[in-house]
Design a protein around this nucleic acid. Structure first.
Length: 352
DNA sequence: TTCAAACTAAACATCT
DNA sequence: CAGATGTTTAGTTTGA
């Protein structure tokens, strides 16, 4: 595993916390999920710099014993290299969001598997540090919410707001515009929950389209029929991406649909990634999107595959000495997250 | 406890 | 006229 940082397995200097626009709520929710499963997510590092500490978050244990190094568990850009979690039936799993091939079928500048391995070894590393023996009480701790009767996948409401669902539907359309009827159809197709949901959800969709300033009504093209086409206001795209980052991780009682069955189309999210790849300059928008794609691609279950009490560190090593033009740390972080999400933007390629 | 965002329901108008 | 679409208002729920 090449150029690992010297502090590999160790701890970078405390207090080297960068103020980056990481979606705190997203990370906080992941940290809580980890904590609820009896592990601890201690720090997120990018380029050797501490992006986020979780010591002050709910569920994070104290840091008195976090100096014990442990063999690295490589993961970056390829969650499939991780051993399968032994708790496949973990209701907290978001396996339906973790298809490794989320980016397949999209004309992305994606790295090949070989290059993924390169990323894995040289750029993005998730390493774990074992802690002192995990407290039994934690391992045995019950889910936060008792599960009386697990809902079937088709009755599991997606963890996305209506604005996000509409956003995804419109983004998935080749013309980036859809009539409301097609938005309904897209949602039903990708989230079968709505097939049998009470009809009120369509009202909610229309209400959202009308009320949310992120969506604009445009004149319907001839032949579209009744109604107008709806588009995403480019000026509010970042707002919607941030909304993505705020989507809650489903609570433990939410059952995971079987992959490929009653599950959202795995090509659901790459549209966002493609937009990223089409972007010439990564900025805050891309940073948020990268973090979103990362979370959607791997979900908290990637953390489930780490040993208990893991000390998760995401670090990127190979290009630390690179001199980047533009927005510095933010840009570097965006690139690292893009790498981890399996997306290579044109800009990133040029910088590589 | 407060606040904001999201959700839900409903009424109504317009259009095909 | 029926049904779909679009707008608006109001109340509720949820999480920070």
């Amino acid at each position: 595993m090449a150029p690992m940082r010297s502090e590999r397995g160790g701890s970078p200097a405390r207090g080297a916390r960068a103020s980056l626009p990481l979606p705190r709520r997203l990370i906080r929710q992941i940290a809580r999920h980890v904590a609820s499963s009896g592990r601890s997510l201690r720090r997120l590092e990018v380029s050797g710099r501490v992006i986020d500490n979780f010591d002050d978050l709910d569920g994070a244990s104290d840091e008195s014993d976090m100096e014990t190094p442990q063999p690295a568990l490589a993961c970056g850009g390829n969650a499939g290299t991780l051993p399968p979690a032994d708790n496949d039936d973990d209701l907290t799993s978001l396996s339906w969001l973790q298809d490794r091939n989320l980016l397949r079928g999209i004309n992305l500048t994606t790295k090949s598997d070989m290059e993924d391995s390169k990323i894995l070894r040289n750029e993005v590393i998730i390493k774990t540090e074992s802690k002192t023996p995990p407290p039994l009480a934690r391992v045995a701790s019950p889910p936060r919410t008792p599960c009386k009767s697990p809902p079937s996948p088709t009755h599991t409401k997606p963890p996305y707001s209506f604005s996000c669902l509409i956003f995804m539907a419109i983004e998935a359309a080749p013309a980036r515009a859809l009539p409301v009827k097609e938005i309904y159809a897209w949602i039903i197709r990708h989230f079968p929950y709505f097939k049998h949901a009470p009809q009120g959800w369509k009202n909610s969709v229309r209400h959202n389209l009308s009320l949310n300033k992120c969506f604009h009504k445009v004149a319907a093209a001839p032949g579209v029929g009744k109604g107008s086409l709806w588009t995403v206001d480019p000026q509010h795209r970042s707002t919607l991406l941030q909304a993505f980052g705020r989507q809650p991780i489903p609570p433990p009682e939410v059952e995971t649909p079987e992959p490929g069955k009653n599950a959202p189309d795995p090509q659901l999210f790459p549209y966002l990634a493609r937009r990223l790849a089409d972007t010439s300059e990564p900025g805050a928008d891309e940073y948020l999107a990268a973090a979103t794609v990362l979370a959607m691609k791997y979900g908290p279950a990637v953390l489930d595959q780490l040993p208990p009490e893991a000390h998760l560190v995401i670090s990127r090593c190979a290009r630390d000495e690179h001199s980047y033009s533009g927005s510095g740390e933010e840009r570097r972080t965006a690139e690292a997250l893009l790498n981890l999400a399996g997306v290579t933007s044109h800009t990133h390629t040029a910088l590589s």
